[in-house]
Amino acid sequence: MPPSPQGDGGTSRPPLLEIVVPARNEEGRLPGGLLELCAKLARMPFPTAVIVVDNNSTDRTAEIVRAWPRGPVPVRLVPCETPGKGAAVRAGLLGTSAPFVGFCDADMATDLDAVDLALGLLLSGERVVIGSRAHTGSHVQNRHSKVRELGAYGFRALAGALVHGVSDTQCGFKFFDGVLAREVAVLLRTPGFAFDVELLARCVERGSAVREIPVRWRDMPGSRFSPARHTLGIVLELGRIWVRLRAQPRAAARPAWEPPLDPVGYP
């Protein structure tokens, strides 16, 4: 059998790219998602690695990662006790060391072929590359209700006031220059659904443009989001982000995390 492109076990050289997968109670979707992600990364002509962040799961999520077989793409577990996808992504990004980093959802709703384009743009000098379901070149399979679609439209309008020119802040497929991602992750204070908005806004305030790319995206079953239960909390989160970004001199004196309004955030 020919050797993998990444060498023996993927450990001979440090990774050029690390991908974070936030996970809460994902024992059903995580094995298939990791198989798909590792198969994609194993075909890369350079070392890569995966970090799964266990966000207080009560099922076998952590056990699945600990027992993951050794292969060309190392997979390691990072625990995160603070509830919320934003908290989990923050912990994962701070656990990276690669020149390029990214994160994607455990359900792999975004087709992983987009990794090639994202990394190519990073290598050419872009510092923030994100998947956008609103891109004219994207193919989106969407089974959401009309109520949820209306809520998404309202969210995009509010998020656009904080991150100008970005059409889709919430697609769970984002890649960054590693140094920038770690600098920004230290500052993140939003643990829930709207964390992407703060993440991108802080990248922009450091002079990094956000490059949106087309994706193939599938609406996967198992979403925990409910417009009736979560809309108010999300609006309040966006308000907090707006205030926080405009109170930079006092930001350093704030606690590392504010009490989450709602730990929602997982697809």
Rank of each mutant, 00 (worst) to 15 (best):
F100L: 07
V184K: 01
V89P: 00
A39F: 08
I19Y: 02
F225Q: 05
T11M: 12
Q6V: 10
L261S: 05
L94D: 05
P263H: 06
P74Q: 00
A252V: 15
T11N: 10
A98E: 03
V78F: 03
L236N: 06
T231M: 11
G95V: 06
L30N: 04
D111F: 07
G137Q: 09
A88C: 13
R29G: 04
G165M: 14
D116P: 01
R156Y: 03
T82V: 15
D219N: 14
R206P: 03
T82R: 12
S124P: 03
P263E: 07
G137I: 07
D262M: 11
V89Q: 04
E63M: 09
I130T: 09
V184Y: 04
R70H: 11
A87M: 12
P31L: 01
P259R: 15
I19S: 02
P83C: 11
A157P: 04
D113P: 03
P260C: 14
V210S: 02
V243R: 15
V21S: 06
D113E: 14
V101K: 02
G120N: 08
E149C: 13
P5S: 04
I213Y: 02
Q248W: 12
C171F: 01
T190R: 13
R182P: 03
Y266S: 09
Y266N: 10
H144Y: 13
L16E: 14
H230C: 07
E126W: 10
S4E: 09
G172I: 03
E18R: 12
K85Q: 11
I241H: 04
H139E: 13
A23E: 06
R202I: 00
G233S: 13
K146P: 12
V20Q: 08
D107N: 09
F176Y: 13
S57V: 07
G160L: 06
A256M: 11
V52W: 02
R218D: 08
E149G: 04
P3Y: 11
R76S: 13
V115Y: 00
A134P: 02
Y266F: 15
R224H: 12
R13L: 15
V78H: 00
P69T: 08
R189V: 02
L94E: 11
E212L: 07
S124W: 04
W257G: 05
G125L: 04
L150R: 15
A251N: 10
D262I: 12
H144E: 10
A201R: 06
C171L: 12
D219I: 07
P47D: 00
S145M: 08
E237V: 08
G131T: 05
N25E: 10
F193R: 14
C38A: 12
L77C: 07
G154E: 07
G9K: 12
P214T: 05
L232I: 13
R60S: 10
W217G: 01
I51P: 01
V264C: 13
W217T: 03
P99V: 09
P74T: 00
V147R: 15
P214M: 06
W242E: 04
F100V: 01
R182G: 01
V101P: 02
P31S: 00
I234H: 03
P69G: 05
G102Q: 01
R206L: 11
M108P: 03
P221G: 02
R229G: 03
G84Y: 04
G28I: 09
E258I: 09
L200W: 02
M108H: 02
I130F: 05
Q248I: 11
I213A: 05
C80L: 08
S138P: 05
G33D: 03
T82A: 15
R76H: 15
F155P: 01
D113M: 11
G9T: 11
